[in-house]
Design a protein around this nucleic acid. Structure first.
Length: 425
RNA sequence: AGAGAGUUGGGUGAGUGGCUUAAACCAGCAGUUUGCUAAACUGUCGUACGUGUCAAAGCGUACCGGGGGUUCGAAUCCCCCACUCUCUACCA
C-alpha cells in the first residue's frame, strides 16, 4: 500500500497518478488519507501521554508497597480508575482510526511511473518494441494448438476433466517432455544470468497473501484449503517475495535476484469466454518466475534488465514478440510500471501475453515491511520487482502453432538438447 | 494424530507480579593501545509510531512466538492459536 508520508510530501503527484488510473475524486481521497492520519496522530499523542502518567503512578505504587506504606498505596490506586477508563477509550479510538486509514489505503492502487501512458483499457497500451517476422502458414498447415495437441496426442484436456475438471490438462509423452525441457531451459538461463534458484512452498498462509497484495481483494482468485487455512499460490511471486517479509536487509545483500519454478493455481472465476480455448487460460499451469529486491535508486535499471532478460528467452525460442508498456487503466493494482511481453500465435493469429514484468516500488515492501539499511545505517523500504520468465502454456501454444508443418512440429533448436528429439510427429 | 517440554534482542542465555530502564556472554560497529596480525581495554549496539528539529540529539508509547484477559502494575499469572523439540503412532 501507499505510504502516508509519500502522500503528504507529494500530494499533487500522487493525485495526478491516481487520476491516470482513472480514479475519480483522487484529490479528495488523498485528503481523507491525510486527515485520518492527522486524527490518528492526535489520538496517539493523547493516549501516549495518559499512558505515561499511568506508568508513573504504577511505579510510585510499587515504591510505596516496597516501603510498606500500604495505606498510601491504596489511596493512590483509587485515582487510577479514571485514567484507566480514559486510556481504554483512547486505545479503542486509536485502533478504529488506524483500521479506517488502512482500509482506505488498501483501496488505493500504486502511483504509476511517469512514463505510464494514460488510457482506459488494453487498447491504450503502448507497443514499444517488436521483434521477429510473423510466420505465414499455409491454410492446410494452420491448425490451432488445441487441434495440434489432439493430432499428436501430447496434451489431453478430456483426461484432465476426468481427473480434476476443466482447465487441468494432462501432458503426455512428448508434451510432458516439452514442459520439462522448457522449465529446465528457463532455470538454466536464469542461473547464467545471476539468479539464485528457489523452490518455495506452493501453499501459503494468510500473512503471505497480504504481503504481496493478493489479499484482501483477490481471495476469489485463489484456491483455499479451509482445514489448514492455506492458499494455493497463483504465482511463485507470493512465496518468493514473502521470504523477505519483515526483514531488514544489509545493503551488500542487494540486489537480490531469485528465480523459482512452481505450478500456479488460479480459479479464474467468471473469466471464461471465446478467447480462452486450449492453453490460453488454465486453472493449473507451470511458470518460472524471477524476483528482484532492489535499492530504490536502482529499481528501474533492474526493470530494464529483467525486460531484456525475458526478451532474450523469447529470441532464443525464435518466437516473434512485442513489448507493451501498459497504460494506467490496464496495469495491475500494485504495479508502478509494467511491461507485457506477447508472442504471436500464428494459427490463432493473436498476440498472447507470456510475461508481465513489473516494478512495484515500495507498494509491496510497505505491506511486507521489507527494508534495507543504507550507507547511513538508516532503514528504508526496498523496491520489489517480478516477472514471468516464462509462463509455459502460451509459450507451448505458440511453439506448436508457429512451427507446424504438414508432417509434424519442429522444435526450437535451443530446446533440442533438453528434449532429445527434434520433431513432434 | 496422542502425551510431555518449550518459544526472551543478530546468536547463546538469565529472568515466577514492582530496583528489569530485559542481566551476562558472544558476534557486530567506533575508538584506545600496537612494527603487522592477534589480544586487551573503553564506548556503542533493536524495531515501529509519536514528539521535537533545517537536520539531529533528546523525550514519550508499544513490542519478550501471535491474539485476548486478570492487575494500580505482566517477559512473569489465566485463556485461545501458531510453531519448535522429545517420545509414541503413522508414513514417502
Amino acid at each position: 500500500m501507499l505510504q502516508v508520508t509519500f502522500i503528504r510530501e507529494n500530494f499533487e503527484k500522487a493525485a495526478q497518478g491516481l487520476e491516470k488510473r482513472n480514479i475519480r475524486e483522487a484529490q479528495s481521497l488523498l485528503r481523507q488519507v491525510v486527515q485520518l492520519d492527522d486524527e490518528r496522530k492526535g489520538i496517539q499523542l493523547q493516549r501516549d501521554q495518559l499512558q505515561a502518567e499511568a506508568n508513573s503512578i504504577s511505579k510510585s505504587i510499587g515504591q510505596l508497597m516496597r516501603s510498606g506504606n500500604h495505606a498510601e498505596a491504596e489511596k493512590v490506586k483509587s485515582r487510577t480508575a479514571e485514567i484507566k477508563q480514559q486510556t481504554k477509550e483512547l486505545e479503542t479510538a486509536y485502533s478504529e482510526k488506524e483500521l479506517e486509514l488502512t482500509q482506505l489505503l488498501y483501496t488505493l492502487p500504486n502511483i504509476p511511473h511517469e512514463s505510464v501512458p494514460t488510457g482506459k483499457s488494453a487498447e491504450d497500451n503502448e507497443t514499444i518494441f517488436t521483434h521477429g517476422n510473423l510466420p505465414e502458414l499455409s491454410e492446410s498447415e494452420k491448425l490451432p494448438h488445441w487441434e495440434l495437441i489432439k493430432k499428436y496426442d501430447i496434451i489431453d484436456f478430456e483426461l484432465g476433466v476426468k481427473i480434476s475438471g476443466a482447465g487441468f490438462p494432462v501432458y503426455k509423452g512428448k508434451g510432458a517432455r516439452l514442459q520439462r525441457a522448457l522449465v529446465n531451459f528457463f532455470l538454466d538461463e536464469a542461473q547464467k544470468a545471476g539468479y539464485m534458484e528457489i523452490q518455495p512452498p506452493i501453499l501459503v498462509n494468510e500473512d503471505s497473501g497480504y504481503g504481496t497484495g493478493q489479499l484482501p481483494d483477490k481471495e476469489g482468485q485463489m484456491y483455499f484449503a479451509t482445514e489448514d487455512n492455506l492458499y494455493l499460490i497463483p504465482t511463485a511471486e507470493v512465496p518468493i517475495t514473502n521470504i523477505y517479509r519483515n526483514e531488514i536487509l544489509q545493503e551488500d545483500q542487494l540486489p537480490i535476484k531469485n528465480v523459482g519454478f512452481t505450478p500456479c493455481f488460479r480459479r479464474e472465476a467468471g473469466s471464461w469466454g471465446a478467447h480462452v480455448r486450449g492453453l490460453n487460460r488454465l486453472h493449473q499451469f507451470d511458470k518460472v518466475e524471477i524476483v528482484h529486491i532492489s535499492r530504490p535508486d536502482k529499481s528501474y535499471a533492474a526493470l530494464e534488465e529483467m525486460s531484456t532478460y525475458v526478451q532474450s528467452l523469447l529470441k532464443k525460442l525464435e518466437l516473434p514478440y512485442r513489448v507493451l508498456r501498459l497504460c494506467g487503466g490496464d496495469m495491475g493494482f500494485t504495479s508502478a510500471l509494467t511491461y507485457d511481453m506477447e508472442v504471436f500465435s500464428a494459427a490463432q493469429e493473436r498476440w498472447l501475453e507470456v510475461s508481465s514484468v513489473s516494478n512495484f516500488e515500495t507498494y509491496q515492501a510497505n505491506r511486507l515491511k521489507l527494508r534495507f539499511r543504507d550507507e547511513n545505517k538508516k532503514t528504508n523500504l526496498a523496491h520489489t520487482l517480478n516477472g514471468s520468465a516464462l509462463a509455459l502454456p502460451r509459450i507451448v501454444a505458440a511453439i506448436l502453432e508457429n512451427n507446424q508443418h504438414a508432417d509434424g512440429i519442429k522444435m526450437p533448436s535451443v530446446l533440442i538438447p533438453y528434449l532429445g528429439f527434434e520433431w513432434i510427429q
